[in-house]
Amino acid sequence: MELDLETRQDTLFVRPEGELDLGVADFLRNALEESLNKNPVRHLVFNLSRVSYIDSSCLGVILGRYKRLAREGGRVSLVGLQPHVRRICELSGLLRIMGEYTTEEEAVARAG
């Protein structure tokens, strides 16, 4: 997995690439926590357009960041879900609590 993190204003953009599974869950969690601790944000945008697979361990990482931001009045958005990844997010219930958008720009615009 490759991971690109970018902070703009009050938004952290998370752009992983590859498979999000148990083998990368700790790395993903630690990278997100480090970034959130360094740059407090109110909106987290997960761009999953280059993710081919996601399992429950990484869904848990996303859910954990959702809980953290929700406590602080923030929000989490999902962008560019591939059909297989979207189905997993739907079955897990993530799509009931997080917005799903086509582009990062749309996610940011709807966050306000």
Results as ranks from 00 to 15, higher is better:
5 L>C: 00
6 E>M: 12
6 E>F: 04
10 D>L: 08
13 F>M: 07
14 V>N: 13
14 V>Q: 08
16 P>Y: 01
19 E>T: 14
19 E>P: 10
19 E>F: 07
20 L>D: 02
20 L>A: 08
21 D>T: 04
22 L>V: 10
22 L>E: 07
24 V>G: 02
26 D>V: 09
28 L>C: 01
30 N>K: 13
31 A>Y: 12
33 E>S: 14
41 V>E: 11
41 V>N: 02
43 H>Y: 11
43 H>C: 05
43 H>S: 07
45 V>S: 02
48 L>T: 08
51 V>T: 06
53 Y>W: 12
54 I>L: 06
55 D>S: 05
55 D>W: 03
56 S>K: 02
59 L>Y: 00
62 I>E: 04
62 I>V: 11
65 R>W: 03
67 K>R: 13
68 R>M: 10
70 A>C: 13
72 E>N: 14
76 V>G: 09
76 V>W: 03
77 S>D: 03
78 L>Y: 07
78 L>N: 01
79 V>P: 00
82 Q>G: 14
83 P>W: 02
86 R>D: 12
88 I>R: 05
88 I>H: 05
90 E>Y: 14
93 G>Q: 11
94 L>H: 08
95 L>R: 07
97 I>N: 15
97 I>Y: 11
98 M>Y: 02
104 E>Q: 04
104 E>L: 07
106 E>N: 09
107 A>V: 01
108 V>W: 14
108 V>S: 03
108 V>M: 11
